[in-house]
């Protein structure tokens, strides 16, 4: 779970860069286990676009998700939920 300082910093940076609503690109890297993959994809609604990219040896999976976000707060909340999933690197 993200601490308050990290959330504030992230919120500030997001607001500096984006005009909301905006298409936001989430990126995650993890070892491709089904439960983990399901936990990450369950964070997103059905209409999002997801690209999975495996590393050359197939040991790691990168997930790119594009979604229209209404505010920095929504993005921070999504990252906060993702940070609760074990073994997932959030970019």
């Amino acid at each position: 779970m993200l601490n308050d300082e990290t959330k504030d910093r992230l919120r500030q940076r997001l607001n500096d860069v984006h005009d909301w609503p905006s298409v936001y690109m989430f990126k995650f890297i993890f070892e491709p286990q089904t439960e983990r993959l399901d936990s990450v994809t369950a964070l997103f609604p059905a209409e999002v676009e997801i690209l999975r990219k495996y590393s050359a040896g197939g040991k790691y999976l990168s997930l790119t998700v594009r979604e229209v976000m209404m505010s920095a707060e929504e993005v921070v909340e999504r990252y906060n939920k993702a940070s609760e999933i074990q073994g997932v690197i959030i970019l």
Partner: peptide, 8 residues
């Protein structure tokens, strides 16, 4: 639909 996987 809406998803794709790429593998080298």
């Amino acid at each position: 639909v809406g998803q794709s996987t790429e593998r080298q």
